[in-house]
Amino acid sequence: MSDMFLDKFRALVPKYLGDPWKPSDGISEDELDEALEEHAFTVPLVLREFYLALGNSELMEAYHYFWDPEELEIDEEGFLMFLEDEDEQFTWGLRSGDLRVPDPIVYRKNNARGEWVSEDGTFSEFTFDMFEWVFSTAEDDEEEHV
């Protein structure tokens, strides 16, 4: 494996949680392979490395909820769903036709309307931007209460 994104994802633990990254923050290769073996699809490299780096960390449930690898599924419209917001109003996914792309474009579904719209960014771009937004919003909230 080429580890294109692994170190960047691991760096999110000290950046946002203030602790050094530990192997227990991620999922081992064997555990990940076992969790994914039931699926009839292959996950993109970026999603695989995301789980290897962060699959057991608190970041999996930082405002939005990343699905555990065994929970991943492709919906009837052909999107591999991997994330939802806490109110289940939106779901994020990747086009199943793009799963061989190392870092595919992310789409968001409005669950009430049922339509998928491009986020205009790859999984890695979307994820880094989302965590930046989540933690800058959390810091802003803390400053307001001081």
Rank of each mutant, 00 (worst) to 15 (best):
G114P: 01
S124K: 01
D75G: 09
Y107C: 01
L80S: 04
L52M: 05
M81L: 12
D75Q: 08
R95C: 11
Y65A: 09
Y63L: 07
A62E: 11
E86G: 12
Y63N: 14
L94N: 01
V101D: 15
N56D: 14
D103Y: 02
G55Q: 10
G78E: 06
A112T: 13
E76L: 08
F126C: 04
R113G: 07
R48V: 02
V106Y: 03
P102G: 09
T122N: 03
L94K: 04
R100A: 15
E70L: 08
D87M: 11
R108P: 00
N111D: 12
T91S: 14
R95M: 14
R113S: 04
E86Y: 09
D103C: 06
R113M: 08
R100L: 15
V117T: 15
Q89R: 13
M60L: 10
S124F: 11
S96D: 15
K109P: 00
E70W: 11
N110P: 01
P104N: 04
P104Q: 04
D68I: 04
E70T: 09
L80M: 14
D87A: 13
I105E: 15
G93V: 03
N111Y: 03
S96M: 12
E61F: 05
H64G: 10
E88L: 12
S118D: 09
E77W: 08
E76R: 10
V117N: 12
W92A: 04
G114I: 03
E88A: 14
G93P: 04
N111E: 15
Y65K: 12
F50C: 00
Y63Q: 13
E70R: 11
F90K: 07
D68S: 12
I74N: 11
H64T: 13
N111F: 01
L54W: 01
L83R: 05
G55T: 08
